[in-house]
Nucleic acid binder design. Structure first.
Lengths: 207, 207, 207, 207
DNA sequence: CAATAAGCGAGACGGTACGTCCCGTCTTGGG
DNA sequence: CCCAAGACGGGACGTACCGTCTCGCTTATTG
């Protein structure tokens, strides 16, 4: 196992490889993506790919991460004080992403890759999903401080209560993903997370 | 494209292929499964596989469906009258399945296949997941009649409120799947689905 | 080994198979001829072919024989008394056949088949070439009686002296096959076969 | 159609492929030779064969050519002055080769290949047969200068007069190929080629 | 400031599996 | 019992990619 020296690495090649991979997935789909095609498209030797990435999946994940780096930077949910509205905003945004054919296809490709390769899975969930989940958790924490959420609520589960249903419906295509659906999920979640009677009778959810 | 005549089909070969595929996935994993290996193991020509299935994924899905045909027959959740207990039973059972390495691997393989091929997806969800979801929906319907669930609750969403979080956590490996977790999800769901104050004051959830 | 009963044989199928084979060779060439294609073209089950012929080569040979049956019937060289003219006639006719692209291709196919399969070889040489060689030998025998050919000449070799050069040139494509060439070969052969001085001084070849 | 770069070609693989092909033909016969078997025997990927040769026939022909490269180098018939003896030597040698089962099989394989593929045909005749024919023609030219052969004899035809009959008999297996037969053919040829009466009365064929 | 060592493009290599074609056998149903 | 139809186990085809391995060719320190 030789560990190449990263200081010598060609940034030009790295960029060419990542965008070649990204474009090819858009054109032919992730399933038909090959390392040889990436190399050819990028004008790069295959060895240069194998030197820096362990698999085509890793290249693709990095491509996605790289191209969405800026957006996700310091992701934070807006905190308008209106928890219901803020959560609706997140879920509706996610529903919108899943309804974009390009993003849908890419997300499914990433998910399939994550299913097969645990290492890629943690990469993906850690760097793409992670920040969103964390930001939502943070928003719920703030709401809990404001007494809008039960004091003993497990926020990790709370987050899954919001994203789980949407993810489930998207993955299994059981029913259409609409804004109305997103709102319904938020409504259920708010009820589930609401402080118990008497815990805080002076503060309403809408507060 | 010539469509072969199914009346002449060899049932013996079909069975051999399906169980070869199933066994091979158990032994070497879905990712390393090949059509050639299935054919060799089944003592069958490759053409016989390609004649009846479009891909190795389709073979595997049919293998799973075929071998689980009897079990899922007329699936119905127990209805003890105790909704909390009944739902805990379902979610804990699912958590147990996902914690079995064999079943876990197989489920991930099926999910990956479903992601890549919408046709297989509906086959899978329709014949494996569908019955479970429907049975749970039926149990909730019964609970709604008993006044334990809000009269206006959308049961399709309710089901996703239960399964979504578990599925999310399993797929993304964000946290361990435990019975305790299952119970927490049930608790949240029951609160979310609970009849609104005054809707029915003579009936408690615990019934 | 089952020996089918020839009395039950379908003459209609036999004819269909032979002409399908013949036509297919004309269309796609002998090398690409397949039993399945013959069966499909003839509207016949593959088994019907395998029941009556041992190989596709055998079918083709029989096809050629069958379609040229009449011509070769009781083949005999003309005996005008002019040996030179008669032999030129045969060789020129052969040269003409080899110069016909259709017949050329077919002859090469037959030769290739004969090279690979001794059984077909004797079939071919016995039933196609044989009669021609025998007729020529007969003509030479007549000439020998007339004193135009040396009394001790081995006529089997004599025949090869005539056909060998033409065959050699055709097979190896070393030089073009022309009537002039045929005549030259005849000339050489006549000299080679001429009676030795004094053996018969009153009879000339041209006689 | 990408044409590979010959400078990067592996000579080791080339040699392994050629001798594997040669050995396999000797062991199982040309008809049963497969590209896969050659690759396996040579310890080579199939693609390496397809990269450099268009067909198994081409591999075999090159194998034969390569292994007989040295022998045929500057082929020249012995010129003892005794034309009859020299020609008998050539034809007897050829008869011997055809009577060696190994060489017989190989020659038939080459002939079949040459029949099906004109490109290979010229390769074969040009590099294997060509030199022999040319050497014989040269010997006859020398004999013509010595007055043992008619001045106006077409030596290309003369050569075919010698080899044609032998080739004919070998290809068609009409009669056994013996030294006696070779001698007979030489005898006929010498008579055919002999100078006409009076053309040169001071020189006999026997020299 | 040469020497030298790394990354690089290119692409040949040994391999594995693909999906197709055809082989020769076997089975079914019809005449 | 022959026939048409065609499914079957099997073997080879020629192709696509895999991941590894040289090749020369830049390029960027470093003795």
């Amino acid at each position: 196992m030789k560990t190449p020296n990263p200081t010598r690495r060609s940034e030009r090649s790295r960029q060419a490889i990542l965008s070649a991979a990204f474009d090819l997935v858009a054109e032919i789909g992730y399933a038909k993506l090959t390392v040889e095609a990436i190399a050819a498209r990028a004008g790069v030797g295959k060895q240069t790919i194998y030197r820096w990435w362990p698999s085509k999946g890793a290249v693709f994940v990095e491509a996605v991460l790289d191209l969405s780096r800026d957006e996700r930077g310091e992701l934070a949910l807006p905190d308008t004080g209106d928890l219901r509205a803020d959560l609706r905003g997140v879920l509706r945004a996610i529903v919108d992403e899943y309804n974009d054919p390009k993003l849908d296809a890419m997300s499914r490709a990433l998910s399939a890759e994550a299913l097969a390769d645990p290492a890629l899975n943690s990469e993906i969930t850690g760097r793409i999903l992670g920040p969103i989940l964390e930001a939502t958790r943070e928003r719920l924490r703030s709401a809990r401080r404001a007494g809008q959420v039960a004091a003993d609520a497990d926020l990790s589960v709370a987050v899954e209560l919001l994203f789980g249903p949407v993810y489930h419906r998207w993955m299994l295509r059981t029913n259409p993903l609409t804004h109305e659906y997103a709102d319904t999920v938020v409504e259920f979640a708010l009820r589930a997370l609401a402080p118990t009677q008497g815990e805080s009778d002076s503060v309403s959810v809408k507060g």
